[in-house]
Amino acid sequence: MGEVIVITSGKGGVGKTTTTANLGTGLASLGKKVVLVDTDIGLRNLDVVMGLENRIVYDLLDVVEGRCRLKQALIKDKRLENLYLLPANQTRDKTAVSRQQMIDLMAQLREEYEFVLIDCPAGIEMGFKNAIAGAEKALVVTTPEVAAVRDADRIIGLLEAAEMEAPRLIINRLRPDMVRKGDMMDIEDMLEILAIDLIGVVPEDEYIVISTNRGEPAVLDRHSRAGQAYRNISRRLLGEEVPFLNWEAGSSFMARLRKLIGLG
């Protein structure tokens, strides 16, 4: 029986899809059997980020409405043997699927796969409710901005109300240089406000733009800093104790300097 994990954020554009693609690829590269599910019906994107957009024949809606078998709709990844994608439908909207259909689908997927990662749509409406319905764990993605953290707080409240296991936080697009200057909220600030456990910090990395252009998740690139962060989060999802990288630990150069010259 596999784990069903939903990746959510409330606010759009903070990196849910990129996170889902990279963690799924990361877990698969560690030998796990993984399926990624795009639940953003009407606005599907996970296929493009994974570089699998040309291989779609059937989608999630075809499965729940019985037009094809589950196996027929699953797209095998180009790079990894044990990684699959269930794409969203692009022509309908979030109301096309019911909560119960999602619960049943996830129950079916967890029989076959060790990890089912759900890419949740932005917002708190039906699409969100459906996406979390069949999941038992949640990862909340935020960026160090007031609007993103505010929405993350709302999402955490809704996940608690839905009686999910305590969600874990991914801080995305952190800029250590700006944190050092005091012009970006640091990790401690966000953890204090949101009061949940941290599972990882992904630094801002130009390579993400390049890898998304190519349709190749950054987690496979040894030179990408964001890729390294995603590899670490993947290992933490497997229960490994992975030390936080220096930008994750929050000990800024300035703080160390201050300590050194006796000001801190």
């Binding site: 953290v149 707080d153 005091g182 909220m185 600030d189």
Partner: peptide, 23 residues
Amino acid sequence: TASKKIAKERLRLVLVHDRAGVS
């Protein structure tokens, strides 16, 4: 006055209202 302090303070106030309003 680092702008992160302003961000954190604004966030703190907005969340007092959000959390009280939501529940």
